[in-house]
Nucleic acid binder design. Structure first.
Lengths: 156, 156, 156, 156
DNA sequence: TTTT
DNA sequence: TTTT
């Protein structure tokens, strides 16, 4: 019954556009890589160290569509989600693991018209895409038929 | 560069005791698995789904020693840290990836004397181990010579 | 507008039982104080300092009822919510402000049967109250008629 | 001894420049208001509701100086900190309370040269102020003599 | 008003 | 491999 918490909070830059996958039944997911950077001084050697960490972000359904529409490679975004490690088999039949962040909430942080791709006609002032918060726990349309197993059985 | 955030917040149960690794120069790390649980009702099938997610927690130096001493298999603990995916080679020379949570902060949540292992003599009243918060960003002993590369070049 | 984040994460002990308030239309809120503790050594004087911080937690509707039923004075609980400062007038007509945490998520952390009050008959095994996570963003019953203004116009 | 967590995570826009206060002994704090916005649809009335929440941010010492230097009114910033409610007496001798966020970490989110004030010569490429993360738990200069009571006895 |  |  839980009593546990699994929460990830990231602010980073997208490394690519959102790749969509559509399932039968109307569900969809979007995937994109997110980079966070870390800088510190190695206390032993005194040298400045710079690391980039890449995160696999997974978004679903309506949230995925919003991300695909407004989030472009290089954009800064706030992501809140859950850690999930998927097990899959490589072409040699060996077990492989991939850790993803299942996005539950996001907020675009890139200013409109800068770093948001060029010529995106949908970015009307009324839509304010650069500042769109999204919470995937919002009451969804029950008719949409969200099926968790769609995501868990991904062949990629 | 930065301007980014990489934060993980977990509350879960340890799946094993802390395994310590000591490096030349006095540094050390501790590792342990942490389980978080998720329960929800599949909206399509209506069935109750229960998932366990396992997280690889890595703690360093003094924090690692405190965890090894007081954290026992099955204990509940709050972990705050950063996501880091390590690349390593398996015995066939293939690239493999493992995502870890580098623990920056923790707080024991298991009540004293229950679920904290049996007969742990070190749990004196003055230590109050079950409620010990820890922040790895606290000013550490500069003489300790923390070496980041110790952790990054792990052969396991 | 948004593009903003307002998030509070607390683990603490309740200082009192949950006080419920019921509104016309079926909505309700529950309130309780939550204590977090801080200990540190004053770097100037070298003395050990211990502070208790009290937080005003506000929960709504079904979540409030669950808290009232299972959360007892002294229990440990994880709270996730939003900061909200309410303005009100004291008996002299002066503006006063009160900052609250509007709870969006919670998880009970006190073990069953310990620190959960005595003789609470409702704590059946099937309910597993001590480990009940709750997310107020879950699709609520639309018939419930949640009215935000109920909470904003509180006379207390 | 704690076993508690008191954490606030905010992304918002500053409502004013940073106001500095210097103490004897070399300590200092900076204060500034931060706005977060919330939009939702009232489920009862169906109307769109927009709320702005103001937070009192308090930063210390070196972090305060960095904020004063690079954070301008209107800038977007990520703040991580702790909730603290201060008690003070108004001019009639009545107890008043003010809740503040004691900033432990921050990251500037406004792009360089936009929304960061005009003519800030210090914003050299090497400083990269728009993306400067800061953690107040970093080992501070012990000679700095941080005195917690400075902040707790504020006359404002 | 909590907890250790 | 945890917990409820």
């Amino acid at each position: 019954m839980a009593g546990t918490v699994n929460k990830v909070i990231l602010i980073g830059h997208t490394g690519d556009d959102v790749k969509m996958h559509y399932f039968e039944g109307g569900n969809s997911i979007g995937r994109f890589p997110l980079a966070t950077n870390e800088e510190y001084t190695n206390r032993t050697t005194g040298e400045r160290v710079s690391n980039t960490e890449w995160h696999n972000i997974v978004v679903r359904n309506k949230a995925a569509e919003i991300c695909e529409k407004y989030l472009k490679k290089g954009d800064k975004v706030y992501i809140e989600g859950r850690l999930k490690t998927r097990k899959w088999q490589d072409d040699k039949g060996l077990d492989r693991y991939s850790t993803e962040i299942q996005c539950m909430d996001f907020t675009f942080l890139s200013p409109k018209g800068e770093g948001m791709g060029q010529g995106n006609a949908q970015q009307g002032a009324s839509a304010q895409p650069q500042a769109q918060p999204y919470n995937t726990n919002q009451p969804a349309q029950p008719s949409q038929g969200v099926n968790e197993s769609d995501v868990d059985d991904l062949p990629f």
